[in-house]
Design a protein around this nucleic acid. Structure first.
Lengths: 156, 156
DNA sequence: ATCCCTGCAAAGGGTTTGCAGACGC
DNA sequence: GCGTCTGCAAACCCTTTGCAGGGAT
């Protein structure tokens, strides 16, 4: 489900970005942006590509990669690597920044927020003389469901 | 430089692990373990492989991958994904757990420790009912050197 | 009209896999 | 001797690249 209002806002920002960089405003780029903002949760390139194809919108994988790079660069989309060698993306404009807990059994991903991370980021940046731009905190563990499943299997 | 005492300790642990799992104690596995514990800092599979070849120890890449998996599983080695699709590893037994700051310009990696992360990990695990096993916190930014370099280029 | 962007397909690079032979157990 | 591990190379998969045609400016 696309939040039209939010999409229009993001579209404006993207347009301004493209203009400022002297890049072309192509229908493919907007189609990809729209597809992303009509999705919820994480997705990889193949899922995005397949989702568009299903809706009858044909773009090439190369264009998907190209556009994702632009969007990530401008922080309208964020990119994650959850261990496996497969980039995952999610829309990020207007969404509270958050981190992830990943179940190593079923690969479920749950989001959380903790204000302390911001403090760490600031402090470490100052201490080590880095200009920190973003961070990625992933907690890996086993979710309740998988633990329950494992316990059931053991006692059987 | 290999810390012989530490290596012997890790070797014992690895041996016990192999025995407990009914796996074979092959010379290749120990050779890889030794190579890893004689290294400092991060390395990727290719570097490890090349390093061994240079010392005249021939193992196949397949065995390197296989052994790394075993070592990571038993927490004698830790594995990182610093953005690029290239796994990086480092020895981890007896080393204080730490996190990383990565320069997005020159790919330099600096380590740091912050006790608050442990608190976050515990709290989130309880809140979301996950049994957290490990975490990965990466801060991405631009290091002092690269900022200086950029400033120089701009004013020239 | 320019020349950037797209689509296609092939190349690339890290990782995994299949199989035959070797070797711990 | 059995069954797993190794080595080799091919296969795999995601991602990047090269190039020709098309469309935004």
């Amino acid at each position: 489900m696309l939040d039209v209002e939010k999409y229009e806002e993001v579209k404006k920002i993207f347009t301004a970005y493209l203009e400022s960089k002297g890049l072309r405003k192509t229908s493919e780029r907007y189609a990809i942006l729209e597809e992303i903002y009509s999705r919820t949760g994480h997705f990889d390139v193949e899922e995005l590509y397949a989702g568009m194809k299903e809706r009858g919108i044909q773009v090439s994988r190369a264009t998907v990669y190209n556009t994702l790079d632009l969007l990530v660069e401008h922080h309208l989309v964020s990119k994650h690597q959850f261990g496996r060698n497969l980039a995952q993306y999610e829309k990020s404009y207007g969404y509270r920044q958050h981190d992830h807990v990943i179940c190593t059994e079923c690969h479920k991903v749950v989001e959380f927020c903790d204000p302390r991370i911001h403090g760490i980021q600031t402090m470490v940046g100052e201490l080590l003389n880095f200009h920190i731009l973003h961070h990625s905190l992933n907690l890996y563990g086993i979710c309740g469901d998988c633990r329950a499943k494992a316990a059931r299997t053991t006692t059987e």
